[in-house]
Amino acid sequence: MTQAPLLSVEDLRTYCYTRAGVVKAVDGVRFALERGDSLGLVGESGSGKSMTCNSILRLLPKPAARTVGGRVLWDGRDLLTLSEREMRRVRGREIGMILQDPLISLNPVFTIANQVGEPFRLRGAAKGRSDLREKVLDVLRQVHIPSPEARLSQYPFEFSGGMRQRTVAAIALAGSPGLLIADEPTTSLDVTIQDQFLRLLRELQEKTGMALILVTHDLGIVAETCNKVAVMYAGKIVEFGDVRQVLTSPAHPYTEALLKALPVPGTRQKRLYQISGEPPNLLDPPAGCAFEPRCHRAMQACKKARPPIKRLSDGRQAACLALEAGEVR
């Protein structure tokens, strides 16, 4: 018998209840992570990446969204059935999260020392003031904040965007989590800072062995940072597997289209490839495959039933009827 994975998400369903109707933002998501894995979660805007992350930590916008089904197995427990009290112990300590925008995820009215120290204080990890100070300085050094001693009494508005982002990472690290979820952690930073930050994440991951879920639009970042990738489309994972396999020979037509839309460095393209058509309306999703209207391999059968996600011979998983018909490679 193989050992249970670190995190196993099974048939997760999170719906948004809007005035216009029910949006199935996360509709049967399933994936598993091992210790030290780093998973890139990619997909178009609105495909449900953030909702998936928020569902894992149970931080959905209330009362608009609710997880209506599935299991999130973590360390032998189903997070979805924990009490709010138990869930609080998971947040920050066992699973950390970095939010998208570093400019607004630090509290403007508390000092850096206060905010970075809070995770230690919350779990009673520091013995006295000077120990707390040492621990705070230590994590700030780990994320390469220059002269951290001088920074302790400063406020977020005195920090640059990159420094704020690293402070947010320091806060996540302060809980020494086994899994870090980073929801588009670098979209609001410029490219060099973005690069530095991703390098930092990799470095920390190597040092601590924590697993990582990295949400991004950028397949280049995934290729550099992750060992696994999950491609989401309309609330479902349509392809999941090893980064090299998926990015070099995509099985699902949507992954293929995403890769085609990437600019190739060193070449001059007049126009980037664009995926034609619109993402489906999640209020009234098609009965068949959600990608079918935009798919160049669409068959008659695709309109009728949703393709189940299947394990392919090379170990990866994909949800496409064409694969079964032997259409794709």
Binding site: R88, R89, V90, G92, Q100, L106, P108, L122, V168, G175
Partner: peptide, 15 residues
Amino acid sequence: GADYIKMARVKGNSE
């Protein structure tokens, strides 16, 4: 609705 409120929850603060 601010992100730093969500961040406070992420840290494991009580409501």
